[in-house]
Amino acid sequence: MNDGPPDERREPPEGREALEEEASGGTLAPSAELEEALREAADAVADPVEARGQPPTRGMRLAEGVKLPSDENRELREELDRLRAEADDARRELGRHEDRFVRLSADFDNFRKRVLREREEAHRYGSENLVKELLGVVDNLDRAVEHARRSEGADFESMLQGIELVQRQLQGALAKHGVTRIDAEGEPFDPTVHEAIAQKEEGTVPGNTVLQVFQPGYRLWDRLLRPARVVVSKPPRGADGGGEGAEG
């Protein structure tokens, strides 16, 4: 038997003493800040009732700042749901902008074509009013040339040559701008380019034939500026009746 003094078992320290012993058991001495935090935590654990209503200590503040994994997962799910909702809104907004872009592109293409067409027409027919004014000059030259041809003498011959020269120059200038003359004598009457001012009985040509051009017509490219004013033939009187009598 062991005659020595009985083995006194030391009870494990609790509360503040346990924290101080644990802190002092390391190889390095605890810092003053750590000792203060340990004391505050030990006091709160030793008497939680007294700690109620007291201002939060540093240890309590550190404990409150810790987030559990479940809290982090919930925040991540909420953030993911928010990002998904924003992505759906962005896709819908993108679809609306794409539809608007398609409509605007079609409108712009139509506008561009219309502008090009109007520009071409303005370039092609921009001199229409000027040409109409010059047509009267051409008519007067035509009459002067016709009068000179009916006259006699050397003076009239030289005058005729000068007028014919001016006539050719003016007609050439008009032709450069797309003006063409409609001379329809001997052709069938065409109401789209001819204007009948009189009818004349003529048995040597078919009916509705242009016998005489009183005033020539003109075109500007493919547009009619004015129709040719003409005299149109018609069958002699009694020609149809004689035929009917012969048949009877």
Score class of each variant (00 low, 15 high):
residue 7 D to K: 07
residue 8 E to G: 07
residue 10 R to Y: 10
residue 10 R to E: 14
residue 10 R to A: 15
residue 13 P to N: 08
residue 13 P to Y: 10
residue 14 E to H: 13
residue 15 G to P: 12
residue 16 R to N: 12
residue 17 E to Y: 04
residue 21 E to K: 14
residue 22 E to A: 15
residue 22 E to C: 13
residue 22 E to L: 15
residue 23 A to S: 12
residue 23 A to R: 10
residue 25 G to E: 12
residue 27 T to S: 14
residue 29 A to Q: 10
residue 30 P to K: 07
residue 35 E to L: 13
residue 38 L to H: 00
residue 40 E to F: 01
residue 42 A to H: 03
residue 42 A to M: 01
residue 43 D to W: 02
residue 48 P to M: 04
residue 49 V to D: 09
residue 55 P to W: 02
residue 55 P to V: 08
residue 57 T to D: 06
residue 63 A to T: 06
residue 69 P to F: 05
residue 70 S to A: 12
residue 71 D to N: 05
residue 72 E to T: 11
residue 74 R to E: 14
residue 75 E to P: 02
residue 79 E to R: 15
residue 80 L to C: 13
residue 81 D to I: 07
residue 81 D to R: 12
residue 88 D to P: 00
residue 89 D to N: 04
residue 92 R to F: 02
residue 96 R to C: 01
residue 97 H to E: 07
residue 98 E to K: 00
residue 98 E to M: 00
residue 99 D to R: 07
residue 103 R to G: 06
residue 107 D to K: 07
residue 108 F to A: 15
residue 109 D to Y: 02
residue 110 N to S: 12
residue 113 K to T: 10
residue 113 K to M: 09
residue 114 R to L: 14
residue 119 R to S: 14
residue 121 E to A: 14
residue 121 E to S: 11
residue 122 A to P: 04
residue 125 Y to V: 09
residue 125 Y to H: 11
residue 127 S to L: 15
residue 131 V to A: 08
residue 135 L to N: 09
residue 135 L to V: 06
residue 140 N to Y: 09
residue 140 N to D: 10
residue 144 A to Q: 08
residue 144 A to S: 11
residue 145 V to Q: 10
residue 153 G to M: 10
residue 153 G to N: 08
residue 154 A to E: 13
residue 154 A to W: 06
residue 156 F to S: 12
residue 157 E to W: 03
residue 160 L to P: 04
residue 161 Q to S: 10
residue 162 G to R: 08
residue 163 I to H: 05
residue 164 E to H: 00
residue 166 V to T: 03
residue 167 Q to G: 03
residue 169 Q to R: 11
residue 169 Q to Y: 01
residue 169 Q to S: 05
residue 171 Q to T: 07
residue 179 V to T: 03
residue 180 T to I: 04
residue 182 I to F: 05
residue 184 A to T: 08
residue 184 A to K: 01
residue 185 E to W: 02
residue 187 E to K: 12
residue 189 F to K: 00
residue 206 P to D: 04
residue 207 G to P: 03
residue 207 G to E: 05
residue 219 R to E: 03
residue 221 W to A: 10
residue 221 W to H: 15
residue 222 D to T: 12
residue 227 P to V: 06
residue 228 A to R: 09
residue 230 V to D: 06
residue 232 V to S: 03
residue 233 S to P: 09
residue 233 S to L: 05
residue 234 K to T: 13
residue 235 P to M: 11
residue 235 P to G: 07
residue 236 P to N: 09
residue 237 R to S: 15
residue 238 G to V: 08
residue 240 D to W: 12
residue 241 G to H: 15
residue 246 A to F: 11
residue 246 A to V: 07
